[in-house]
Amino acid sequence: MRILVDVGNTSVKWQLRSDGVVVDGASGDLGALGSWLASLEQGGDYTAAVSCVRGEHCMSELRSMFRSATLIEPHFATSTSEFHGVTNAYASPEMLGVDRWLAILAVIARGEDSAIIIDAGTACTIDVLENGHHIGGYIFPGVALARDALIANTDRIRFSEHVAISTAPGANTAECVQSGVWLTLYAATREIIARAPSARVFITGGSAGELAALGVEGDCVQGLVFDGLDFWLNGS
């Protein structure tokens, strides 16, 4: 049985897999993860892999949590210069976010060697894979982050109402901000996709559905980091 954990910037998700099949899983915070680990059968045949984009303090807390609940040492995935023939564009490969690296590995595991991977979360990352090589990527503020930055760093952009997602011109401040942040992300993703017309597009993350609804074409796939962890464990 494999315990797979994805610790992102704002949320924690986990899965239990048996022979590649998800048999349990949820999301929450570190406390909820600890409670779930404690509920597992003691002495079970578990292997654990973790993707963590937070700092060493969080990783240390996770190690203690696993040792206490399951008596096993988790494997922490890292970004490397190469894995099973896939190369990393970063000169300092460890600086590539491990969640991005694992999403790339997940796409390779699906048999794709040329792809664009859009992860629309707290930050929106876009990575480009060409003939099995990661050639680089882009990082944008996610929609909520961009909206919050406008409010925090201006005196007069203020609103409380919730408005529909749109890229059309707004008729009030809330609509203008909403359309502006979504149009920025929409236009950027469309431009990047246009530069690699033969690449298969994968869209994941919390805002994947909204991007697709706006017209960004691609396969909406959740759980790429988990799939990448599974693949990484097979070859590590």
Rank of each mutant, 00 (worst) to 15 (best):
H133L: 07
S114E: 09
S166K: 09
T122M: 00
Y90P: 06
M95E: 15
A123W: 04
R147E: 15
T167G: 02
A115I: 04
R190G: 00
A146D: 03
Y90A: 02
D148I: 02
C176Q: 07
G85W: 12
S114P: 08
F159M: 03
E175R: 12
E130F: 10
F140N: 13
D113V: 12
Y186N: 11
S114T: 15
Y186M: 07
G136W: 06
A89S: 15
A199E: 03
T154C: 07
V163C: 09
G180M: 03
T167Q: 06
D99M: 07
T184R: 14
M95P: 02
E94T: 14
R147P: 00
D127A: 10
D127C: 09
V201A: 04
L129G: 09
F202N: 01
A152Y: 04
I193V: 12
G205S: 03
I151E: 05
V143Y: 08
G142F: 04
D119G: 05
N172Q: 09
N172D: 15
R156G: 03
A188N: 13
V163K: 10
D119L: 03
A106G: 04
L145I: 14
T87I: 10
T184E: 12
A149G: 07
E191R: 15
G97S: 04
I203T: 07
I118N: 01
A171H: 15
V98A: 02
V98S: 01
T184G: 13
I192H: 02
L105Q: 14
S179Y: 06
V143A: 12
A106F: 05
E112H: 13
A109N: 14
L96H: 07
A174S: 10
C124E: 12
G132W: 11
R100T: 05
V107N: 09
G136R: 03
G111L: 07
T184L: 15
I104M: 15
R110L: 07
G132K: 08
G137V: 05
R195N: 13
I192D: 02
G170E: 04
I126L: 14
G85Q: 12
L102N: 06
I193Y: 01
I151Q: 10
R200N: 14
T125R: 07
V143G: 00
H133Q: 14
E161V: 10
H134M: 09
T204W: 12
A194S: 15
G121I: 06
H134N: 14
L129C: 13
S92A: 13
V143T: 09
E130Y: 08
A149H: 02
F159E: 03
T167A: 09
V181S: 09
G206S: 01
H134I: 11
D155L: 13
F159W: 05
S92G: 00
